[in-house]
Protein backbone atom coordinates (compact mmCIF):
# COMPACT_ATOMS: atom_id res chain seq x y z
CA UNK A 1 0.00 0.00 0.00
CA UNK A 2 1.43 3.37 -1.02
CA UNK A 3 0.26 6.84 -1.96
CA UNK A 4 -0.81 5.73 -5.41
CA UNK A 5 -2.98 2.84 -4.25
CA UNK A 6 -4.59 4.96 -1.52
CA UNK A 7 -5.41 7.70 -4.01
CA UNK A 8 -6.83 5.12 -6.38
CA UNK A 9 -9.01 3.68 -3.63
CA UNK A 10 -10.25 7.17 -2.73
CA UNK A 11 -11.03 8.01 -6.35
CA UNK A 12 -12.81 4.68 -6.80
CA UNK A 13 -15.03 5.42 -3.82
CA UNK A 14 -15.67 8.87 -5.32
CA UNK A 15 -14.42 10.68 -2.25
CA UNK A 16 -11.95 12.79 -4.20
CA UNK A 17 -11.82 13.90 -7.81
CA UNK A 18 -9.15 12.91 -10.30
CA UNK A 19 -7.85 16.45 -10.27
CA UNK A 20 -7.48 16.49 -6.48
CA UNK A 21 -5.76 13.13 -6.66
CA UNK A 22 -3.13 14.48 -9.05
CA UNK A 23 -2.60 17.54 -6.80
CA UNK A 24 -2.00 15.26 -3.82
CA UNK A 25 0.27 12.96 -5.73
CA UNK A 26 2.41 15.86 -6.97
CA UNK A 27 2.56 17.19 -3.39
CA UNK A 28 3.79 13.80 -2.19
CA UNK A 29 6.53 13.58 -4.83
CA UNK A 30 7.85 17.12 -4.28
CA UNK A 31 7.44 17.22 -0.51
CA UNK A 32 10.68 18.32 1.20
CA UNK A 33 12.31 16.16 3.85
CA UNK A 34 12.10 17.88 7.23
CA UNK A 35 15.07 17.56 9.56
CA UNK A 36 13.57 19.89 12.17
CA UNK A 37 13.72 17.55 15.17
CA UNK A 38 17.14 16.19 14.36
CA UNK A 39 18.54 19.72 14.26
CA UNK A 40 16.80 20.66 17.51
CA UNK A 41 18.17 17.57 19.22
CA UNK A 42 21.71 18.39 18.10
CA UNK A 43 21.27 21.95 19.35
CA UNK A 44 19.99 20.77 22.70
CA UNK A 45 22.78 18.21 23.13
CA UNK A 46 25.27 20.91 22.17
CA UNK A 47 23.96 23.14 24.95
CA UNK A 48 24.14 20.24 27.39
CA UNK A 49 27.74 19.43 26.42
CA UNK A 50 28.85 23.06 26.40
CA UNK A 51 27.50 23.84 29.85
CA UNK A 52 28.83 20.56 31.26
CA UNK A 53 32.25 21.33 29.78
CA UNK A 54 32.24 24.85 31.21
CA UNK A 55 31.24 23.53 34.61
CA UNK A 56 34.03 20.97 34.77
CA UNK A 57 36.69 23.31 33.38
CA UNK A 58 35.86 25.91 36.01
CA UNK A 59 36.27 23.39 38.80
CA UNK A 60 39.47 21.93 37.39
CA UNK A 61 41.19 25.23 36.80
CA UNK A 62 39.80 27.21 39.63
CA UNK A 63 43.29 28.17 40.85
CA UNK A 64 45.09 28.72 37.57
CA UNK A 65 42.96 30.88 35.31
CA UNK A 66 42.12 34.34 36.50
CA UNK A 67 38.80 34.46 38.25
CA UNK A 68 37.94 37.73 36.61
CA UNK A 69 38.46 36.17 33.19
CA UNK A 70 36.13 33.30 33.94
CA UNK A 71 33.50 35.48 35.52
CA UNK A 72 33.68 38.00 32.70
CA UNK A 73 33.37 35.29 30.03
CA UNK A 74 30.41 33.52 31.59
CA UNK A 75 28.73 36.80 32.51
CA UNK A 76 29.10 38.05 28.94
CA UNK A 77 27.64 34.83 27.60
CA UNK A 78 24.72 35.00 30.03
CA UNK A 79 24.02 38.65 29.31
CA UNK A 80 24.24 38.02 25.59
CA UNK A 81 21.77 35.16 25.83
CA UNK A 82 19.26 37.13 27.88
CA UNK A 83 19.69 40.19 25.66
CA UNK A 84 19.03 38.09 22.57
CA UNK A 85 15.95 36.59 24.17
CA UNK A 86 14.62 39.99 25.23
CA UNK A 87 15.26 41.47 21.83
CA UNK A 88 13.38 38.71 20.05
CA UNK A 89 10.61 38.25 22.56
CA UNK A 90 6.96 39.06 22.07
CA UNK A 91 4.91 40.97 24.64
CA UNK A 92 3.53 39.06 27.61
CA UNK A 93 0.12 37.49 27.29
CA UNK A 94 -1.93 35.15 29.47
CA UNK A 95 -2.22 32.77 26.53
CA UNK A 96 0.46 30.70 24.90
CA UNK A 97 2.86 32.93 22.95
CA UNK A 98 4.15 31.36 19.77
CA UNK A 99 7.49 32.98 19.03
CA UNK A 100 8.36 32.79 15.34
CA UNK A 101 12.05 33.14 16.16
CA UNK A 102 13.46 29.65 15.85
CA UNK A 103 16.35 29.98 18.24
CA UNK A 104 15.19 32.15 21.13
CA UNK A 105 13.89 29.18 23.13
CA UNK A 106 17.27 27.52 23.03
CA UNK A 107 19.18 30.74 23.66
CA UNK A 108 17.11 31.28 26.79
CA UNK A 109 17.86 27.74 27.93
CA UNK A 110 21.57 28.35 27.40
CA UNK A 111 21.31 31.67 29.26
CA UNK A 112 19.59 30.01 32.22
CA UNK A 113 22.24 27.31 32.53
CA UNK A 114 25.17 29.67 32.19
CA UNK A 115 23.51 31.89 34.79
CA UNK A 116 23.54 28.90 37.13
CA UNK A 117 27.21 28.31 36.38
CA UNK A 118 28.00 31.97 37.02
CA UNK A 119 26.15 32.08 40.29
CA UNK A 120 27.62 28.78 41.42
CA UNK A 121 31.09 30.05 40.64
CA UNK A 122 30.59 33.28 42.52
CA UNK A 123 29.31 31.38 45.53
CA UNK A 124 32.11 28.82 45.38
CA UNK A 125 34.91 31.32 44.95
CA UNK A 126 33.78 34.38 46.86
CA UNK A 127 31.03 32.86 49.03
CA UNK A 128 28.88 35.69 47.80
CA UNK A 129 25.93 34.59 49.88
CA UNK A 130 27.95 33.27 52.79
CA UNK A 131 26.26 30.32 54.38
CA UNK A 132 22.79 31.44 53.36
CA UNK A 133 22.51 28.70 50.78
CA UNK A 134 18.79 29.28 50.57
CA UNK A 135 19.40 32.70 49.03
CA UNK A 136 21.85 31.19 46.57
CA UNK A 137 19.21 28.80 45.31
CA UNK A 138 16.19 31.04 45.43
CA UNK A 139 17.79 33.67 43.17
CA UNK A 140 18.08 31.45 40.09
CA UNK A 141 14.68 30.03 40.91
CA UNK A 142 13.16 33.49 40.75
CA UNK A 143 15.04 34.25 37.54
CA UNK A 144 13.79 31.03 35.96
CA UNK A 145 10.21 31.50 37.02
CA UNK A 146 10.26 35.07 35.75
CA UNK A 147 11.75 33.95 32.42
CA UNK A 148 9.22 31.15 32.16
CA UNK A 149 6.29 33.55 32.36
CA UNK A 150 7.85 36.43 30.49
CA UNK A 151 9.15 34.38 27.55
CA UNK A 152 6.64 31.56 27.73
CA UNK A 153 9.15 28.77 28.23
CA UNK A 154 8.16 25.50 29.82
CA UNK A 155 11.74 24.35 30.21
CA UNK A 156 12.56 27.39 32.36
CA UNK A 157 9.39 26.73 34.36
CA UNK A 158 10.40 23.23 35.26
CA UNK A 159 13.91 24.41 36.11
CA UNK A 160 12.30 26.98 38.39
CA UNK A 161 10.13 24.36 40.07
CA UNK A 162 13.15 22.11 40.54
CA UNK A 163 14.91 25.05 42.16
CA UNK A 164 11.97 25.66 44.44
CA UNK A 165 12.02 22.05 45.58
CA UNK A 166 15.72 22.04 46.29
CA UNK A 167 15.35 25.32 48.12
CA UNK A 168 12.92 23.61 50.48
CA UNK A 169 15.15 20.56 50.63
CA UNK A 170 18.16 22.60 51.54
CA UNK A 171 16.75 24.94 54.09
CA UNK A 172 15.31 21.95 55.86
CA UNK A 173 18.13 19.48 55.36
CA UNK A 174 20.65 21.36 57.60
CA UNK A 175 18.33 20.70 60.51
CA UNK A 176 18.47 16.98 59.79
CA UNK A 177 22.25 17.16 59.71
CA UNK A 178 22.12 18.78 63.15
CA UNK A 179 19.92 16.24 64.80
CA UNK A 180 19.59 13.31 62.41
CA UNK A 181 16.46 11.78 63.77
CA UNK A 182 13.21 10.56 62.35
CA UNK A 183 11.44 13.73 63.35
CA UNK A 184 13.46 15.89 61.00
CA UNK A 185 13.10 13.40 58.18
CA UNK A 186 9.42 13.57 58.66
CA UNK A 187 9.60 17.35 58.32
CA UNK A 188 11.18 16.79 54.94
CA UNK A 189 8.37 14.44 54.00
CA UNK A 190 5.77 16.91 55.17
CA UNK A 191 7.28 19.78 53.24
CA UNK A 192 7.47 17.60 50.14
CA UNK A 193 3.80 16.77 50.50
CA UNK A 194 2.92 20.42 51.04
CA UNK A 195 5.02 21.64 48.11
CA UNK A 196 3.55 18.94 45.90
CA UNK A 197 0.01 19.84 46.80
CA UNK A 198 0.79 23.55 46.33
CA UNK A 199 2.14 22.84 42.86
CA UNK A 200 -0.90 20.75 41.99
CA UNK A 201 -3.12 23.59 43.17
CA UNK A 202 -1.13 26.09 41.11
CA UNK A 203 -1.47 23.91 38.05
CA UNK A 204 -5.17 23.55 38.61
CA UNK A 205 -5.56 27.31 39.14
CA UNK A 206 -3.55 28.25 36.06
CA UNK A 207 -5.86 26.06 34.03
CA UNK A 208 -9.03 27.39 35.66
CA UNK A 209 -8.05 31.06 35.49
CA UNK A 210 -6.59 30.67 32.01
CA UNK A 211 -3.29 32.22 33.04
CA UNK A 212 -0.74 30.34 30.96
CA UNK A 213 -3.04 27.33 30.93
CA UNK A 214 -0.44 25.30 29.06
CA UNK A 215 1.87 25.53 32.10
CA UNK A 216 -0.66 23.56 34.08
CA UNK A 217 0.75 20.24 32.90
CA UNK A 218 4.25 21.01 34.20
CA UNK A 219 2.93 22.03 37.62
CA UNK A 220 0.59 19.08 37.87
CA UNK A 221 3.16 16.57 36.72
CA UNK A 222 5.97 17.72 38.99
CA UNK A 223 3.78 18.36 42.01
CA UNK A 224 1.71 15.31 41.29
CA UNK A 225 4.71 13.03 41.47
CA UNK A 226 6.28 14.74 44.47
CA UNK A 227 3.23 14.72 46.73
CA UNK A 228 2.00 11.11 46.27
CA UNK A 229 5.55 9.76 46.37
CA UNK A 230 6.20 11.61 49.63
CA UNK A 231 2.84 10.44 50.91
CA UNK A 232 3.88 6.87 50.11
CA UNK A 233 7.09 7.28 52.10
CA UNK A 234 5.05 8.74 54.93
CA UNK A 235 2.61 5.86 54.74
CA UNK A 236 5.39 3.27 54.81
CA UNK A 237 7.62 4.69 57.49
CA UNK A 238 5.85 7.26 59.61
CA UNK A 239 3.00 7.44 62.10
CA UNK A 240 -0.27 9.17 61.18
CA UNK A 241 -0.69 6.69 58.35
CA UNK A 242 -4.30 7.67 57.95
CA UNK A 243 -3.32 11.25 57.03
CA UNK A 244 -0.89 10.10 54.37
CA UNK A 245 -3.40 7.56 53.13
CA UNK A 246 -6.05 10.23 52.68
CA UNK A 247 -3.64 12.60 50.95
CA UNK A 248 -2.40 9.91 48.56
CA UNK A 249 -5.85 8.59 47.73
CA UNK A 250 -7.22 12.10 47.37
CA UNK A 251 -4.52 12.99 44.88
CA UNK A 252 -5.03 9.76 42.95
CA UNK A 253 -8.75 10.39 42.63
CA UNK A 254 -8.03 13.99 41.65
CA UNK A 255 -5.72 12.81 38.86
CA UNK A 256 -8.11 10.21 37.54
CA UNK A 257 -10.88 12.80 37.40
CA UNK A 258 -8.50 15.42 36.08
CA UNK A 259 -7.53 13.22 33.17
CA UNK A 260 -11.06 13.56 31.90
CA UNK A 261 -10.89 17.35 31.64
CA UNK A 262 -7.28 17.62 30.58
CA UNK A 263 -7.52 14.73 28.09
CA UNK A 264 -4.21 13.63 29.48
CA UNK A 265 -3.81 9.92 29.90
CA UNK A 266 -0.55 10.44 31.77
CA UNK A 267 -2.57 11.73 34.73
CA UNK A 268 -4.84 8.72 34.47
CA UNK A 269 -1.80 6.46 34.64
CA UNK A 270 -0.31 8.36 37.61
CA UNK A 271 -3.60 8.28 39.48
CA UNK A 272 -4.11 4.57 38.88
CA UNK A 273 -0.54 3.53 39.77
CA UNK A 274 -0.29 5.60 42.96
CA UNK A 275 -3.79 4.64 43.99
CA UNK A 276 -3.09 0.95 43.40
CA UNK A 277 0.13 0.99 45.44
CA UNK A 278 -1.47 2.87 48.33
CA UNK A 279 -4.57 0.67 48.49
CA UNK A 280 -2.59 -2.56 48.12
CA UNK A 281 -0.17 -1.56 50.86
CA UNK A 282 -2.95 -0.55 53.20
CA UNK A 283 -4.86 -3.79 52.69
CA UNK A 284 -1.81 -5.97 53.28
CA UNK A 285 -0.74 -3.88 56.25
CA UNK A 286 -4.10 -4.26 57.93
CA UNK A 287 -4.68 -7.99 57.38
CA UNK A 288 -1.27 -9.06 58.69
CA UNK A 289 1.55 -10.95 57.04
CA UNK A 290 0.17 -14.53 57.27
CA UNK A 291 -3.06 -13.74 55.51
CA UNK A 292 -1.17 -11.55 53.04
CA UNK A 293 1.11 -14.44 52.13
CA UNK A 294 -1.80 -16.78 51.58
CA UNK A 295 -3.93 -14.40 49.57
CA UNK A 296 -1.11 -12.56 47.80
CA UNK A 297 -1.08 -14.20 44.40
CA UNK A 298 -4.85 -14.36 44.16
CA UNK A 299 -5.16 -10.72 45.19
CA UNK A 300 -2.57 -9.44 42.71
CA UNK A 301 -3.97 -11.53 39.88
CA UNK A 302 -7.55 -10.40 40.37
CA UNK A 303 -6.80 -6.79 41.26
CA UNK A 304 -4.53 -6.22 38.29
CA UNK A 305 -7.10 -7.87 36.04
CA UNK A 306 -9.60 -5.40 37.51
CA UNK A 307 -7.29 -2.47 36.76
CA UNK A 308 -6.87 -3.76 33.20
CA UNK A 309 -10.63 -3.84 32.74
CA UNK A 310 -10.81 -0.29 34.10
CA UNK A 311 -8.09 0.92 31.72
CA UNK A 312 -9.65 -0.87 28.76
CA UNK A 313 -12.95 0.84 29.45
CA UNK A 314 -11.76 4.07 31.04
CA UNK A 315 -13.73 6.09 28.51
CA UNK A 316 -16.96 4.49 29.69
CA UNK A 317 -16.10 4.84 33.37
CA UNK A 318 -15.04 8.45 33.10
CA UNK A 319 -17.79 9.38 30.67
CA UNK A 320 -15.46 10.47 27.89
CA UNK A 321 -17.01 10.54 24.48
CA UNK A 322 -14.72 9.51 21.70
Amino acid sequence: MNTRTILKALVDKEIISDQQSSVISSYETTRPFSIHWELRSILYLGILFLTSGIGIIIYENIDTIGHQVIIATIACLTIACFAYTFKHSLPYSHDEVKNPNKLSDYVLLLGCTTFLALEGYLQFQYTLFGTRYGVAIIIPTIVFLFSAYRFDHRGALSMGITGLASWLGLTIAPLSILSENDFTEERLVISAVILGIALVALGWLSCEKQIKAHFSFTYLFMGGNLAPAAALVGLFTHPFKIVYFCIGIGLSVFFVLRSRQAHSLLFLLMGVVYGYVIITYSIFESIGSDAAFALGSLYFMLSSAGVIVFLLKYKVFLGIKK
Partner: peptide, 18 residues
Protein backbone atom coordinates in the same frame (compact mmCIF):
# COMPACT_ATOMS: atom_id res chain seq x y z
CA UNK B 1 10.26 17.19 26.78
CA UNK B 2 10.42 20.46 28.69
CA UNK B 3 10.65 18.65 32.01
CA UNK B 4 13.28 16.27 30.71
CA UNK B 5 15.33 19.18 29.38
CA UNK B 6 15.24 20.94 32.72
CA UNK B 7 16.18 17.81 34.61
CA UNK B 8 19.22 17.36 32.41
CA UNK B 9 20.40 20.93 32.52
CA UNK B 10 20.59 20.71 36.25
CA UNK B 11 19.80 22.92 39.14
CA UNK B 12 21.32 24.95 41.90
CA UNK B 13 25.00 25.38 42.62
CA UNK B 14 25.05 23.39 45.84
CA UNK B 15 24.52 19.72 46.22
CA UNK B 16 20.90 19.07 46.87
CA UNK B 17 18.05 16.72 46.15
CA UNK B 18 15.34 15.23 48.24
Amino acid sequence: EAIWVAQNLGQAPQENGL
